[in-house]
């Protein structure tokens, strides 16, 4: 069980994240899970000073776009690129977009973290 977890709608994401930034909370990371027809993304924050953690969770369709947190927390740039290339999460307006090849090379498996991989013939690279 995850403590201090708040489930929100995708449209509320940036306004909720802004509240953490205004409170000078530290962005820790995000975790993406493949739920079959949806992707679940949980964003974790640490309330500074101290070590109390809380989280925001959204669930989105695999074709839905998710706003980038990088306008608020630049540090989200790595995890958003990773979720994009390994889960196919469609993150909109990432401050630095590695184009699906931050970790994965041209000949790497496609969307390797999805439970049922999309095996498009001849498709190569991160996305």
């Amino acid at each position: 069980m995850i403590e201090n977890l708040k489930e929100i709608k995708k449209d509320e994401l940036l306004s909720e994240v802004k509240k953490y930034a205004d409170a000078k909370a530290r962005f820790v990371t995000a975790v993406c899970n493949d739920l079959g027809d949806k992707l679940e993304v949980t964003y974790y924050f640490n309330a500074s000073p101290g070590m109390e953690m809380s989280a925001l969770r959204i669930a989105v369709g695999k074709d839905e776009e998710v706003p980038s947190l990088t306008g608020i927390y630049l540090t989200a740039v790595l995890i958003e690129n990773e979720m994009k290339e390994t889960f196919g999460l469609k993150v909109k307006d990432i401050a630095i977009d590695f184009g699906g090849h931050m970790f994965l090379a041209q000949d790497s498996p496609v969307l390797p973290m999805l439970k049922e991989k999309k095996e498009a013939a001849g498709e190569k690279g991160g996305e």
């Binding site: 930034a21 530290r26 820790v28 640490n46 500074s48 000073p49 101290g50 070590m51 630049l74 540090t75």
Partner: peptide, 16 residues
């Protein structure tokens, strides 16, 4: 704001 960790964070005065 940059979500640093460990000595990098604590050397900037953050007690975490």
């Amino acid at each position: 704001a940059l979500g640093c960790a460990g000595p990098t964070l604590r050397a900037s005065g953050v007690c975490e």
